[in-house]
């Protein structure tokens, strides 16, 4: 089977190997690195990671499915994860989520038909002093309100096509 993970992935893993006494400890870093390349973790990627580490692909999936950051399904180009935990909820996060749903025409957990946007509710991001906060792909956006979210969605939509 042709490999779907890049040379860059394997080089990064080789560099990390001496940092851990076991190879299995590389599993989380490997899943992160694979997702950075592919935006999600297709079964072939988990298979390949299993082969590299020397564990069964089921063990890879068992671990990957425990953690919410690993996308086991494809996500849109822009993955919005809006925190609705206590601090964000107190500062209006649900209004922001609702606005996204209306504007994007999808519900939480869904992806737009053009595969540009995926919307999720997120648990506490540790940005409670600047609530509401969200992750946009791998980065934070803080101090959200409806207007700011609106601007972000407009800007991303313009980039999207």
């Amino acid at each position: 089977m042709a490999k779907i993970l890049s040379e860059k992935f394997y080089t990064a893993m080789k560099r990390l190997e001496p940092r851990y006494p076991t190879k299995v400890a590389l599993l989380l870093p490997a899943l992160h690195a694979a997702q950075d390349e592919l935006t999600w973790l297709p079964p072939e990627a988990m298979q390949e990671i299993g082969e590299y580490i020397g564990i069964h692909p089921a063990q890879v999936k068992e671990v990957a499915s425990f953690y919410t950051m690993y996308n086991l399904k494809p996500v849109g180009k822009y993955h919005l994860k809006v925190c609705t935990n206590v601090a964000c909820c107190l500062r209006g996060a649900y209004d922001v989520v609702e606005h996204c749903e209306k504007k994007l025409g999808i519900k939480v957990g869904q992806t737009t038909p053009d595969k540009q946007f995926t919307l999720h509710e997120e648990e506490c991001l540790g940005a409670c002093g600047t609530a509401p906060a969200m992750m946009l792909n791998n980065d934070y956006v803080e101090n959200l309100d409806i207007r700011k979210m609106d601007e972000i969605l407009n800007r991303l939509s313009a980039n999207a096509k």
């Binding site: 940092r19 851990y20 076991t22 299995v24 400890a25 590389l26 599993l27 989380l28 870093p29 899943l31 992160h32 580490i53 068992e62 671990v63 425990f66 953690y67 919410t68 950051m69 690993y70 648990e123 506490c124």
Partner: peptide, 29 residues
Amino acid sequence: FDLTVHRGAGAYICGEETGLLNSLEGKRG
């Protein structure tokens, strides 16, 4: 002394120290 940054992947329970250690070892937390 060597020092390595190890990233979790979204699991509250990994703040519990033995869950954290399992996660560090490449297991479910």
